[in-house]
Amino acid sequence: MTALLSVDDLRVETSTGRTLLDGVSWSLDAGGRLGIVGESGSGKSLTALAVLGLLPEGMRATGRVLLDGTDLLTLPPRALGRVRGAQVAMVFQEPLTALDPLMTVGRQITGPLRLHRGLRGSAARDEAARLARLVHLTDTERILRSYPWQLSGGQRQRVALAMALACEPRVLLADEPTTALDVTVQAEVLDLLDDLVDRTGVALAFVSHDLPVVARVARDLVVMRDGRVVERTTVADALAGGEAAYTRDLVAAARAVTGLPTPTRTAPEDAR
């Protein structure tokens, strides 16, 4: 099976020669669900940025990032710009940074539709409304007329998802998309992502520090630490006991502090 997006021996170095990512390799099939998990400093977010050619000033990536056989790292900026958004879209932890505060949500969604898909006027508006419904935004009309700051965190993240999906990308890169959200809202957005992958067939790469969250949406798993890939496995195998000791530690830590304790395990004494 040929991968849709594959990262091959990706290295990122700073201008001072420090290695931030070292030989990172993974692949994502069409319609696949890949989770990239690691703690702070593991390089998981940097990997996502490197794939999109969005590395901060002064960092250099080597290796290969193949999208359908095309190496994105060697692509000139203009061509890369067309790939970004149209073929590979991204959602971030804080959707406010991705949204223009001075533009209504409706115009922000129709912008890429005009640019990449040539939709105009009512066609663009209809498509924007369809996208808003796709991400389960209720009261669509009002939301499309609102400005980002008038929306709740969960609504903003749905809008960001609608924008990401506007050009029917083949790959969706999600970097901690639910970390800033409340638990109940997080659960809704995870359900939505799950549903979007099923319905649109977009391939999902989900980056997070939170293993239970990753396990909720991903099938394949890349475990990262200190800029390297510790293990490539599946979520099911990792939970059953990963190959690498670090993966097992991560699973054990996640079991110890996240998720609900079963009352029999902790049994706090009754207060009275």
């Binding site: 638990v183 997080q186 969250v213 939970l239 059953a240 996640a254 998720g259 706090p268 207060a271």
Partner: peptide, 27 residues
């Protein structure tokens, strides 16, 4: 008492909160 709130939540919001906690399936 925490044990009874977790095991037998009375309020609808508490139940929603508990259901939303991401859980690792027991492996």
């Amino acid at each position: 008492p925490t044990a009874s709130v977790l095991a037998d939540p009375q309020d609808a919001y508490t139940r929603r909160l508990l259901a939303a906690v991401p859980q690792l399936p027991v492996g």
